[in-house]
């Protein structure tokens, strides 16, 4: 598939924002929410979610009709996501507003935290299901897609929480985040490697024989029927070389997992951990863009069987 910048931005930025909101909500329930940094974290989360929503509009041919996308919630995971995202933004906005103006205690604060946790999980589920439910894109049609969307969101949310808390001067909360961020990043690395290994050994169910019904051991395309490009040749081929794909695969693992984990270990030991947190967050942010690019580029669409040779 051809990765679209709008979707890469939306899924990574929104995923991290969900992670941040979830971490803040868990801390609130545990009674460990940082006094000073909580509004900052929630406003940052809200802003990132809005940014993700704006980015997603750039993927549409008719953004002004976007409201229609809520209609088919009975069958379409995209529709469900389109409903869940604004609701979740509403939750984080209300939480941010209340904590900013000092209403950070009370039973409704706990209720809001529980709703936020549920909302983040639901949103990850909807986003992942958009890809998972396409049964013939075999790289995506697996529960690991969901696991990775959620774990990468959680890990990047934890790293972002720690970095922001540190920048806001709440070193205790940052320190509390560090082991969790380290653990989530390590876990996400493990599950992402599992999906990379699975994808490397996928045997495509569709072949030129099944695509054309020609019963012969040797079937080759001689012409796709046109010399210029078409939607089919643009939308479903990433056009990157095998070498670049290999570099992206190594690169995102270094940037999303290895560098942040080293930085987090450093932050745990250091008395002045701001630099470590900043490097971890920056590296992971860039790396996640590459990771999501790779997620799309690696997906092999069976329609590509019909578009192999110009003439």
């Amino acid at each position: 598939m051809k990765p679209a910048l709008s979707i890469i931005l939306f899924t990574t930025v929104s995923g991290a924002a969900q992670g941040m909101a979830l971490v803040t909500a868990v801390a609130t329930l545990a009674g460990n929410a940082p006094q000073a940094a909580t509004p900052l974290l929630l406003w940052a989360s809200t802003a990132m979610l809005v940014l993700g929503l704006v980015a997603s509009f750039f993927h549409l041919g008719h953004p002004l009709r976007a409201w229609r996308a809520v209609l088919m919630w009975r069958t379409s995971w995209m529709s469900r996501e389109v409903i869940a995202l604004p609701l979740f933004i509403g939750l984080t906005f209300v939480s941010a507003w209340l904590t900013t103006f000092g209403y950070s205690d009370g039973p409704w604060a706990h209720a809001l935290a529980v709703l936020t946790i549920a909302g983040a999980l639901v949103l990850w589920y909807c986003t992942a299901m958009i890809y998972m439910c396409i049964r013939f894109i075999q790289e995506w049609a697996h529960p690991l897609t969901l696991v990775n969307f959620a774990l990468l969101g959680l890990a990047s949310g934890l790293v972002a929480c720690g970095a922001l808390a540190c920048a806001a001067g709440d070193l205790n909360f940052a320190r509390a985040c560090a082991p969790w961020a380290l653990g989530a990043t390590a876990l996400a690395w493990g599950t992402r490697v599992l999906s990379l290994r699975r994808n490397a050994s996928i045997k495509p169910k569709s072949t030129l024989q099944s695509a054309t019904g020609i019963r012969s051991p040797r079937v080759v395309q001689k012409s796709m029927g046109f010399t210029g490009g078409s939607f089919n040749t643009r939308e479903f081929f990433h056009g990157a070389s095998l070498r670049l794909m290999g570099q992206a695969k190594i690169g995102f693992q270094v940037l999303v997992f290895a560098v942040p984990m080293a930085c987090l270990a450093w932050a745990l030991l250091s008395m002045h951990p701001l630099t470590a947190w900043a490097v971890a967050a920056a590296s992971q942010a860039v790396g996640l863009l590459v990771e999501r690019w790779f997620f799309f580029a690696q997906a092999q669409h069976p329609q590509n069987l019909y578009y192999q040779v110009v003439s």
């Binding site: 598939m1 993927h59 549409l60 041919g61 008719h62 953004p63 009709r65 976007a66 229609r68 996308a69 379409s76 995209m78 958009i130 396409i134 013939f136 894109i137 569709s206 695509a211 078409s230 939607f231 089919n232 939308e235 479903f236 669409h301 069976p302 329609q303 590509n304 019909y306 578009y307």
Partner: peptide, 26 residues
């Protein structure tokens, strides 16, 4: 008139039977 041009349906067709019209954006 209802299509928002998200192209998701084309991803969900294994045959590549759908083509997005780049001018009309549907």
């Amino acid at each position: 008139d209802k299509c928002i041009g998200c192209k998701y349906c084309s991803w969900a067709c294994p045959y590549g039977a759908r083509e997005f019209d780049e001018e009309r954006k549907v």
